[in-house]
Design a binder for these strands. Structure first.
Length: 399
DNA sequence: TCTGGGGTCCTAGGACCC
DNA sequence: TCTGGGGTCCTAGGACCC
């Protein structure tokens, strides 16, 4: 029955079940059945709760403090991204053995267009079950698959399929499936938009579908209103675009860090800005890109967040120049004793380094810093990222 | 001890150019 | 001494996604 129902459903959304937690648990049989989360840090959030932890109400993105309150025996394990990436690559490779039409969304999910695979498989549903069996055999983790005619519907379907299942939404059942769901299930509807829709009395996707377009436009804007109205009727222009996830150049590279405790000490804050600048510049050099716009982000103790940016005449990947710009932006804030929770540095307007020719500044000593960075990169490659750091960062070690 | 860290996209106003 | 209109860049903020 599912075979036949899936015939006009060329799009699969595959979503690994509790991915980080599941990958960790398969190597830690001692933790089987124990409520455990991937996460950590004093002020962190839950990245991935195991199903045993979910039974206590623990959810992704929940503050760790709240998770521990809900589940006093909670075991917390730090993420091992190298391992997650390795498992993810294997899984994506399995997908590609079925179809080249694989769009990687993140480490743990992908869209597949399986139209080209229907000579080898009797139906999209059969592809879904084949993939689930293979991943279970090869990786010893489970996944859920949504099968539908559009990416938006496939994504909603995979959510309903969890854990360890398949949900097919054939064309004739689209509105029956879609309209009872809450508005927050739609892609693009987050906390704020959901609250706005709720104030209008729109609770379900069906409510959105039956709201006149002009009303939606007034409430949430023309672009968003049109998009949600279409999605509410299962209309979705997006297609599966084969992508590996790392084959498109980033548009920006940034790093931020929440302090263990809020700080109003300029020296502490600027030292962190320097460390983040070095981290960002290093990643830029690895990616062989330079950028022109430096953005400083500051989050205060009350969680209000501001950004300040400056666009430079020339693109750079030099730690010192990024730091100097970020430090200038910080100084221009003129903060006195404001307690700061987080600082961040991001560089935008990225372009391939080969396209950047640096102007020779009369009397300038521009090249010194670039060569210093290259020396740092070589040392880091050989000895690790604690090998070479600006002297001002060494003080942090003693603290 | 509420609320991470990596991103993308959109909006809106002002500057500036033609 | 009247005030258009389009296009692009820059800046700041906000929403959202994984």
């Amino acid at each position: 029955m599912l075979e036949r129902a899936s015939r006009d459903c060329p799009v699969l959304h595959v979503d690994m079940d509790a991915f980080y937690a599941s990958v960790m648990l398969r190597d830690r049989p001692d933790l089987a059945g124990v409520p455990v989360v991937i996460g950590g840090g004093q002020r962190g959030v839950v990245l991935s709760p195991s199903y045993a932890a979910r039974a206590y109400g623990v959810r992704s993105a929940m503050p760790m403090t709240r998770a521990r309150r809900l589940c006093p025996g909670l075991v917390v394990v730090s993420p091992d991204y190298d391992q997650f990436s390795a498992v993810s690559s294997s899984v994506m490779e399995t997908f590609r053995q079925v179809t080249p039409q694989v769009q990687v969304i993140s480490l743990d999910e992908a869209f597949l267009d399986v139209r080209g695979s229907l000579r080898r498989f009797s139906s999209p549903y059969a592809v879904a079950e084949h993939l689930r069996a293979r991943i279970h055999d090869e990786q010893r983790i489970t996944c859920s698959v949504g099968v539908a005619g559009t990416v938006g519907l496939a994504k909603l379907a995979s959510r309903r399929a969890k854990p360890d299942g398949v949900v097919v939404v054939p064309p004739e059942e689209v509105t029956t499936f879609l309209h009872p769901l809450g508005v927050e299930e739609l892609w693009g509807v987050g906390e704020k938009t959901a609250a706005m829709l709720h104030r209008l009395g729109l609770m379900t996707i069906g409510d959105i579908a039956h709201t006149p377009l002009p009303t939606l436009h007034r409430a949430i804007g023309v672009a968003m209103g049109t998009q949600l109205h279409e999605l509410a009727w299962g209309i979705d222009g997006r297609t599966v675009v084969p992508r590996r996830g790392d084959d498109e150049p980033d548009k920006s590279i940034g790093a931020d860090e929440t302090f263990g405790r809020d700080s109003d000490d300029h020296e502490v804050i600027l030292r962190e800005v320097l460390r983040l600048s070095g981290k960002v510049a290093g990643r830029m050099r690895t990616a062989q890109v330079c950028g022109r716009t430096v953005t400083l982000k500051v989050r205060f103790a009350d969680f209000t967040t501001i950004t300040r940016s400056r666009t430079m005449a020339e693109a750079t990947d030099v730690t010192r120049e990024i730091y100097q710009t970020a430090a200038d932006l910080y100084a221009a804030l003129g903060l006195q004793r404001a307690r700061i929770r987080l600082v961040g540095v991001r560089v935008e307007g990225l372009m391939p380094r080969t396209r950047v020719q640096r102007q020779l500044v009369l009397g300038g000593r521009e090249h010194g810093w670039q060569e210093a960075d290259q020396a740092v990169d070589r040392a880091v490659l050989r000895y690790g990222d604690r090998a070479v750091r600006p002297a001002t960062l060494l003080r942090g070690d003693r603290a």
